[in-house]
Design a protein around this nucleic acid. Sequence first.
DNA 1: GCGCACATGACAACGGTTCTCATGTCGTTT
DNA 2: AAACGACATGAGAACCGTTGTCATGTGCGC
Lengths: 144, 144
Amino acid sequence: MREDQAAPPPADVELIGRRTPQRSTVLGALIGSAEFLSAQALHLRLLAAGEHVGLSTVYRTLTALAEAGRADVVRDPGGERLFRYRPSPQHRHYLLCRVCGTGLPVDSSLVGSWAAGISASSGFADVQHTVELTGTCPDCLREQ
Amino acid sequence: MREDQAAPPPADVELIGRRTPQRSTVLGALIGSAEFLSAQALHLRLLAAGEHVGLSTVYRTLTALAEAGRADVVRDPGGERLFRYRPSPQHRHYLLCRVCGTGLPVDSSLVGSWAAGISASSGFADVQHTVELTGTCPDCLREQ
DNA sequence: GCGCACATGACAACGGTTCTCATGTCGTTT
DNA sequence: AAACGACATGAGAACCGTTGTCATGTGCGC
């Protein structure tokens, strides 16, 4: 972790559903993080920053955000779900650092068209794809 | 499920570690299934077939198989791990039916070289990739 | 055949996520 | 401004896949 803990409440970012202090807080923390965060990690951050938001609420908010396409979700090797705010509405893929969690967006148009081709030639309908790249980022590599 | 329940003990397939009836049974069931199976589903199948193998043993065997590169592992949307026997030693990708679980191997050399390219240009080390395609297979599509 | 390291299985423990439900509050309507 | 109803919250329990524990069993090299 290397950025701010408690992001100020986002002024102009659209919330989902009702505007409540808790949702603003969760969304703010998510936006304030450049890394992928688990729901629990985000919850701990908020607690550490003195913000009292229930774990259930964190889960609910993150899940809703993901469903609305406002967050990217990824699964770490342990099966935990990691969230990251997505400013742009398009489908993205990331190269994720296994050590610090930093996510580097990568160009995946190639994978997209590959998946589309598979979809067409296989006869399968409604084909979705998930691509996850993991590695060790240069920073973390240096610190070993 | 559309194939045999209790596969006969595999005669000539190399086991991992000691040759025990339980491992033969688990491996046999895995080989006998064309679909991806969860550890629990496989365990249930064995019970239904009258084979008494402990759930722990099923997990241990499948995990060992996966670590040895003898099985492909995939995560379903719920986070559950699905296993499938891998006859050939190479890295594979599958297009998975969300309804029946059937896995269709797909040509993924393109993705492999794409990942290798990303790896080289990003500065990340030890880059691994997981690609999961899911859809509805023609059979299941027809039955709706 | 002996012995021991490895394997097994019943069960408990664990960790992430979701559910429950009583209470609180946003925002709209009068 | 007050009231109301639908939605949101949070503490804790429940859930579920998975892994650990440990006493007992057994494959296999000697």
